[in-house]
Write a protein that binds this DNA or RNA. Structure first.
Lengths: 343, 343
DNA sequence: TGAAATATTTTACGCGCGATAAGTTTTGAT
DNA sequence: ATCAAAACTTATCGCGCGTAAAATATTTCA
């Protein structure tokens, strides 16, 4: 590689012996030029290592190749993992994905949308905070930018939704717990941040009804996104005031369960399905750490890959459709029950 | 807010009754225009909600307000947490931080640097993969872009380094374990990805020597970044072939320890410092999940905040210094011992 | 009140590339 | 060899803004 620094496309075109418009065409789609020209450009590319100025490109293109990925809490490995899968797929498809997270703060979410808008992205995959989101801000954003919601559905917002079927999660765990032991009580936050939590509670109530068992919901206090801490404190309080009302607990999500398990361990309460176990615990999500809890956590798993793949392909379709669908599709993937040691 | 859509700065300037160059000046630094002008612009801003085109701005400015944050593995809550803190501070300072992660892959790391370079960032905070990094690529990058390394130090790369003092981590844990019980063996990967691991081993050897104890290093097999899994498998193998050679184990990092604890639980081996405990386990990092392991993990904590704050301020200084320092400074923050139940 | 100091306006150019139109060459099938 | 289609070249414009120089207006302070 020669060290002649190439200032712009004009210069690079001269060096490769091709006209600038053709070089421009090449960078927009290498297949769109004749093989012989392509190889000449690529040879020059090896020698001079030029890349089009991304700002000039984006200023002039009708549509950028940027896509936004927004998740509510990026330090949660669950979201980090799904964001990663989505990011990977976009990169492969030649887009420039950028990740954003409001870390639970509604005003930060609105700010992200504002700054995202000014990036003129081709599209956005958006997992909203949920209850706390500023609905008006989201609607305005979605009116301007092709947006697909994932993970957490807000009715009427975005051109489509891709996520997991909460009913499938809960019906499977409840069915399993009932079949192999006793009907569970349901362990959740009093004021969940996420609409999925409400759907899970509803599914619990419905499924228990169906099986002819009395439902019992334990609502624990706590605000914010420190779910493990909240789960642990909630469980401690229950254990210190007489213990759980049933010998089987179904947690709304794995992060609460992680906290609960830690409280049980601390109190010397043995969790699992074997001899000498006082409590069975199951949960939902298959959080990346659920394999390493003590005992390892029986849970219903998201189909991470399916959600990521479908979310990306749906956004692709949306972009190609010009930014809007005739109908707002909702795709829900079923859960897969993962049997481990906790129940 | 009126719904007249403002196309560009020209139009907005006309609407606010100020000339375009002055409006341009305002957006670069609101303090640089007369208060009376400023308030006129801001009044217009409330009515018309205009924002300068980010691509046109960045194309023409000598230096963008972009900064890059690169961490080796973003789905690791440890990195996610520190990246978050850094991101937050840059946002407050009026920069546009963007996060990148190669997820352990050296070629992805080089690609990130390439695409980062084309963003013409004012500076980059970079936590390299370590051993696997393509040193040549990093050097070339750092020659063009003001870069400060953090977390993981590669000698001679970047204009400065900010991180934690590995010796301080290990000397504190070893001292504590020796003082309150017995000298630990050291549990680590055979081929650690990160230079910090080597420094920790060296610190272990040195500290044990100093205390007059025979060091003992257990090297477990495994490749990649699935440290919990690797730690668990390594511990299983040890437990199944006679158990740990000492009753105290010091893990190189918390993620390995999480795996080890899970293996111990599985095998019915009670970990902790009380009666009936067969093993004491301590570690390093204070991973966000270390509070929730069973038992909770005694560990040496990074000063996350100090590292984040110093990394950001160092990069600020570097940018203001025009991109290079006279001397490559290395800032190391000491660890803080966190006593929990595992040792 | 007046002159110097500071802000603002006017004017004009450039950044690097996308897009388009009109003319020229190359291609590949007859 | 012929000819139309495909690919390329040349020329030119526009995107939205930064920046600089010169002219003008406003403020500041004696």
């Amino acid at each position: 590689m020669t060290d002649t620094k190439v200032r712009n496309m004009e210069e690079f075109a001269a060096l490769s012996g091709i006209s600038r418009p053709t070089v421009s065409k090449y960078f927009q789609d290498p297949e769109s030029v004749r093989p012989s020209t392509r190889s000449r450009i690529e040879k020059a590319l090896e020698r001079y290592d030029y890349r089009p100025n991304i700002y000039a490109v984006n200023q002039n293109r009708r549509l950028t190749k940027n896509v936004g990925i927004v998740v509510p809490y990026l330090t949660d490995p669950f979201f980090a993992e799904i964001a990663r899968k989505i990011e990977e797929r976009f990169s492969e498809a030649g887009f420039r994905p950028t990740m954003y997270s409001p870390y639970g703060q509604p005003d930060a979410e609105s700010e992200i949308l504002d700054s995202l808008r000014s990036l003129k992205p081709a599209g956005v995959l958006f997992a909203p905070l949920g209850r706390a989101s500023d609905r008006g801000a989201l609607e305005k954003f979605c009116a301007d930018v092709p947006t697909v919601l994932f993970d957490s559905n807000l009715e009427g917002i975005g051109e489509a939704f891709v996520g997991s079927d909460n009913f499938s999660f809960v019906s499977q765990t409840v069915e399993y717990l009932v079949r192999t032991g006793a009907p569970p009580c349901f362990f959740e936050m009093r004021t969940p941040a996420n609409p999925n939590a409400n759907k899970r509670r509803a599914a619990y109530l419905e499924t228990m009804q169906e099986f002819g068992h009395e439902p019992l919901v334990l609502k624990i206090d706590g605000e914010g996104w420190a779910f493990e801490e909240i789960g642990r404190e909630g469980a401690r309080r229950i254990l210190e005031s007489g213990g759980f009302p049933r010998d089987t607990v179904l947690c709304s999500n794995d992060r609460l369960a992680i906290g609960l398990l830690s409280a049980c361990y601390e109190k010397g309460l043995r969790v699992g399905r074997g001899e000498g176990c006082a409590l069975r615990v199951a949960s939902h999500d298959d959080h990346p750490f659920a394999k390493f809890t003590c005992p390892s956590l029986t849970t219903a798993a998201h189909d991470y890959d399916a959600v990521a793949i479908r979310a990306v392909s749906t956004l692709h379709e949306l972009i190609e459709a010009g930014g809007s669908f005739a109908r707002r599709d909702e795709t829900l993937f079923p859960a897969k029950l993962i049997l481990r040691s906790s129940a």
